[in-house]
Amino acid sequence: MAAVLDVKGLQVRYGGVPALAEVDIVVEQGAIVSVIGPNGAGKSTLLNAIMGILPANASAKGQIKFEGAEFSGLSVEKRVFGGMSLVPERRELFGAMTVADNLLLGAQRLRHIGAANPMSQLDMIYQMFPRLKERHTQFAATLSGGERQMLAIGRALMAKPRLLMLDEPSLGLAPLIAQETLNLVSRLSETTSILLVEQNAKAALNVSDAGYVLEMGKVTAQGPAASLATDPRIIEAYLGVGKKKANPGN
């Protein structure tokens, strides 16, 4: 398996303050990789840096290899056209536009590379989310939390991405819907590689092939999802239980 994404030594600073320190992450072709860790560990920063949408006061260093090409320093649109898609934590939908328009605009990549027909991709998304088809004339701002989530994922999929990055897809969703979202993520991996950031560690690892634990801007544990799920370090990272007995390390 070749790596779709190979991040090496990624460093991000917000106005001189470090947020990510020398992070290495690999996503293999067709795999689901999840990044877990407590709040403020730098998970969103990691995805935003890979996508190139860090705020103006941030600076990023390091290598972002995407399907063999160097992507660091490229504009966001070039990364999108190259095949990256991000569903950000805040969703960033076009609130005052219809569901259908939101989805159609998601296909800018297809228009750019002149590949598949955006309309057939739209049909596919409507099949995947019948709910969105029902509401296709409704403004995105009027959708419920779960529907917004579907729309955000649907919009990202309209680009037929080679790598789909999801930032806390279950955030703000009721437990049942959150679980459905993660089931969906595992189905999506048939067509694209996935980098998943989740607060909900166990659930994320359940659907993943590999995982990374991020704490205070550093990767503190990594490995196959199954073995990571039982790693006591995860409980430490989240709840601080037993931390004092553990080796403070770095």
């Binding site: 996508m51 949408i53 966001v76 649109e77 999108v80 056209f81 898609s85 991000l86 950000p88 805040r90 960033e92 939908l93 076009f94 605009l105 998601g106 800018q108 990549r109 750019h112 919009r155 990202a156 309209m158 680009a159």
Partner: peptide
């Protein structure tokens, strides 16, 4: 930001 994310 949403626009950037879809490649506009």
């Amino acid at each position: 930001i949403g626009a950037q994310l879809v490649g506009i």
